[in-house]
């Protein structure tokens, strides 16, 4: 574990907590894409299958349970909780996210580190996570401007993988044989997809107004 990866995990945890805070306390999911949340639930379900077979550390297992639990409960809240579901913007959240799942699965079957069931699903989760934010970014452009909590959620979610990139650079230089091109490229694509959002998000800080 290094400071970049710890910062990345904490940023990711913060993004999940901000979203849970918004949904649980003010019972609103306005501006949040259910489709992105569904994709993230699939990402964690396929990435953490090894939670039963391999033990890395208490921290690792605990965080996996947190991310699994939070992603599924956010989907549950947005789908089935009356008050929250009422604030869900169904008409605007129309990105065909299931069209993202199949290509990622095919790509994982073609490009992976090892052709085993767990490894292919793990690789699939990497590819899917790289594009999982697309429905949310599309929804963002359709809804005029968003509240601060949603903006902070997206900012933290985009930032965590950026910190992971620093972690991979650090591990590449400090650990022999630490080379994972698939993870690195997927992580880079994922972070670059936020570039446009980061630009407007920082403008907001400079301008001191809501995210347009």
């Amino acid at each position: 574990m290094n400071i970049f990866r710890l910062a990345g995990d904490m940023t990711h945890l913060a993004s999940v907590l901000v979203l849970l805070l918004k949904i649980h306390t003010i019972k609103s999911c306005a501006g949040v894409s259910l489709r992105t949340q569904e994709l993230y639930a699939i990402v964690f379900a396929t990435r953490y299958l090894d939670i039963f077979t391999s033990f890395v550390s208490v921290y690792n297992t605990f965080m996996k349970l947190v991310f699994l639990g939070s992603s599924f409960s956010i989907v549950w809240y947005m789908r089935y909780h009356k008050a929250v579901h009422r604030t869900y913007d169904r008409e605007q959240d129309t990105f065909r996210h299931w069209f993202l799942v199949l290509p990622c699965l095919v790509l994982a079957l073609l490009i992976h580190e090892k052709f085993t069931f767990l490894e292919v699903l793990w690789t699939f989760s990497l590819y899917l996570e790289a594009v999982a934010i697309l429905p949310q970014l599309v929804l963002l452009q359709r809804t005029r401007n968003i509240d601060n909590l949603t903006g902070q959620y997206i900012f933290l979610l985009g930032g965590y993988r950026g910190l992971y990139i620093l972690n991979w650079i650090y591990r590449y230089f400090t650990e022999p044989h630490f080379v994972h091109w698939i993870t690195w490229i997927a992580g880079l694509v994922q972070t670059l997809l936020y570039a446009d959002f980061f630009y407007y998000y920082f403008l907001r800080f400079i301008g001191g107004r809501g995210v347009e």
């Binding site: 995990d9 391999s54 890395v56 490894e119 992971y164 993870t183």
Partner: peptide, 10 residues
């Protein structure tokens, strides 16, 4: 450290 096929990252 954990064997190669382990994924020790989240």
């Amino acid at each position: 450290d954990t064997p190669k096929d382990f994924h020790d990252e989240l």
